[in-house]
Design a protein around this nucleic acid. Structure first.
Length: 271
DNA sequence: CTTTACGCCTGACGGC
DNA sequence: TGCCGTCAGGCGTAAA
């Protein structure tokens, strides 16, 4: 999926385009997502007005004047804002037809995404309640990471990608943040010095913030709501660059599997 | 409790 | 050209 910067890019796009609009009609073509789309989604959303668009980790929250629509893009999900008469094609699972001739379309070939309704702000929803702090928020810091890492022998990269530790960091940005902090991705989380966690927290923030500024990373499946590409891919230091020269020392970037995921790093700079 | 393996799906790609 | 194995940005669950 889209990781946090891509979801934030989508959130901003939606906030600026459909916030304030009423949902006129909902079309569900495929209910078999990660969890089934509620059978009564259409009747519960029709006539509702979208008040604002929020985000928690990689989840989007479309707050309406009644319930909140919770959306996750999984690995391959996309949201497009299209003219209302755009014909649907393969994997176009859900349309929200809005006022002013807009249709918000959910498209997801792999169907790891999710669309659910919940009450209020969804903060206590089972899928959200155990998610760690927002990495760009004030609860996230080196001391927080350090305290959570006590007794954890898991690789630091897997630790960073654990949504219960910190929200929204996936495979790309975990590799990038660790490169920036010069920490080897396979290092056990408990065997990283306290002061290095300050570097790591700062690196996570900078990496994510820059990616958001660039409109996210487009590798395969991501684009903004108008189909525009994100440009952070041009700024990735290690992800997908196995064999290329490290920008810091010139050594060849290495790819190896850590926690069942491809991990990219510089074996010279990262320790 | 922590850690690891796996499944959910489709599509793209590389090797043969 | 087609077939097959592998991989892909997530995440929850089961098992050890």
């Amino acid at each position: 999926m889209p990781e946090l910067p891509e979801v934030e890019t989508v959130r901003r796009g939606l906030e600026g385009s459909i916030a304030g609009l009423r949902i006129l009609r909902v079309i569900v073509r495929e209910r078999g997502l990660r969890q089934p789309v509620p059978a009564d989604l259409a009747e519960r959303l029709s006539g509702r007005r979208i008040l604002s668009v929020g985000r928690r980790g990689k989840y989007l929250l479309l707050h309406t004047d009644a319930e909140t629509l919770l959306i996750h893009l999984g690995m391959s999900g996309r949201l497009w804002l299209l003219p209302g008469n755009t014909p649907a094609s393969l994997h176009d699972h859900v349309d929200l037809q809005m006022e002013q001739g807009h249709t918000l379309r959910f498209h997801d070939p792999r169907r790891f995404g999710l669309m659910l309704l919940c009450n209020g702000d969804c903060a206590n929803h089972p899928l959200l309640v155990d998610i760690g702090p927002e990495p760009l928020g004030s609860d996230f810091s080196g001391s927080y990471l350090w305290s959570r890492s006590r007794g954890r022998r898991v690789a630091i990269k897997s630790f960073l990608m654990d949504s219960h530790v910190v929200a929204g960091i996936g495979n790309i940005y975990a590799s990038e943040a660790l490169f920036r902090a010069r920490i080897h991705p396979a290092r056990p989380a408990a065997r990283i010095a306290r002061h290095r966690y300050d570097d790591l927290a700062a690196s996570v923030r900078v990496t994510l913030a820059r990616a958001i500024d660039s409109g996210g990373t487009t590798l395969r499946d991501f684009s903004g709501i108008s189909g525009t590409a994100g440009y952070f891919g041009q700024r990735l230091e290690v992800y997908g660059r196995a064999g290329e020269a490290c920008s810091r020392c010139g050594s060849a970037i290495v790819c190896r599997r850590i926690g069942q995921r491809s991990s990219f790093y510089c074996p010279h700079c990262q320790r």
